[in-house]
């Protein structure tokens, strides 16, 4: 009837009731929550998945998502909703929190010659553990009084090789201050090679977090960074990982998670601690 071509639908045919229903469901399953301001982003991803799965409508797609026994579609959707980009100094406020709040607390209660131990998982291609190393050297004055060990693990051996190699794109180092860049990197063509000193400062290991035999040796850590990993796990793997972290931490040890994930998805094993820079989780002092 109408002579006008249909306008492109900005909501991709997803009503606001659909959005609310989806948001609730997705949060409960993954721990990732979207503000209403993210509506367009969410609708667009949903529309893509509706199209790829051939389910045709939000309703059809939601039924697949909700009732699929394998959970495969939920996994695919989670991947598309979380842009997992890694670069140096990503979510820097947590490193700030580490040097300004967490390490001073640890230093106050730790005995003389014991090293401070940090476990960083997943290592991915190394940007995060190396960021921590640089941050400690540049921003934590007490680094001269303490031995600090950084161990970083990943399940993927090829990515661990890349991490050990320490060669990065311009994009990857774009937020590194120029002075640090000059001090810790050498530019080779359009890439940046991390200095030997820093590469030697981090120990990379292969670990499957869901495999108790892999993790049983990981003990006596003071801080664990585990950012944007647990959101990809199912509930049981997440529980296993949480138990592993609990065992790996010293009493009073800390866990830092990614910005969009909260411990509420995991467990009540740890206490919430609010520092000026970030919220982190802490194993109780009495625990052992």
């Amino acid at each position: 009837m109408s002579a006008c071509a249909p306008q492109p639908d900005p909501s991709h045919g997803i009503s606001s009731e659909d959005f609310l229903k989806f948001r609730e469901f997705f949060y409960r399953r993954t721990g990732i929550s979207f503000e209403s301001s993210k509506r367009y982003f969410v609708d667009k991803r949903l529309a893509e998945r509706i199209e790829s799965t051939g389910t045709g409508t939000f309703r059809g797609y939601f039924t697949l998502l909700r009732f699929q026994a394998s959970g495969e579609e939920l996994q695919l959707l989670t991947n598309s909703m979380t842009v997992n980009e890694t670069y140096f100094l990503r979510e820097e406020y947590q490193f700030q929190c580490l040097v300004d709040s967490i390490l001073p607390e640890i230093a106050k209660r730790k005995a003389g010659s014991d090293p401070i131990r940090i476990w960083c998982i997943p290592s991915s291609s190394g940007e995060e553990p190396y960021s921590i190393a640089m941050y400690l050297l540049e921003k934590w004055p007490q680094i001269n009084e303490w031995d600090v060990e950084i161990i970083s693990s990943d399940i993927d051996t090829s990515i661990l090789r890349r991490a050990r190699q320490g060669r990065y794109s311009i994009r990857s180092v774009q937020y590194v201050p120029p002075r640090w860049l000059a001090k810790y990197f050498k530019s080779i063509g359009d890439e940046y090679q991390l200095s030997e000193d820093l590469r030697q400062a981090v120990e990379f290991t292969r670990v499957n977090l869901s495999e108790p035999a892999d993790t049983i040796a990981y003990r006596n850590f003071d801080v664990i960074f585990c950012r944007n990993l647990l959101i990809y796990f199912d509930d049981l793997s997440r529980k296993n990982a949480t138990d592993t972290f609990y065992e790996a931490l010293n009493p009073g040890g800390y866990i830092c998670l990614g910005h969009s994930e909260s411990m509420s998805r995991i467990s009540s094993l740890f206490k919430v601690r609010k520092f000026p820079e970030a919220i982190v989780y802490q194993k109780t002092m009495e625990a052992r």
Binding site: V148, A201, N220
Partner: peptide, 20 residues
Amino acid sequence: MALVRGKAAGDAAGKAAQPA
């Protein structure tokens, strides 16, 4: 004192609390 290369098992300081 500085960044030192650690061991995963935390026995670098000879204090590993291995259960066995």
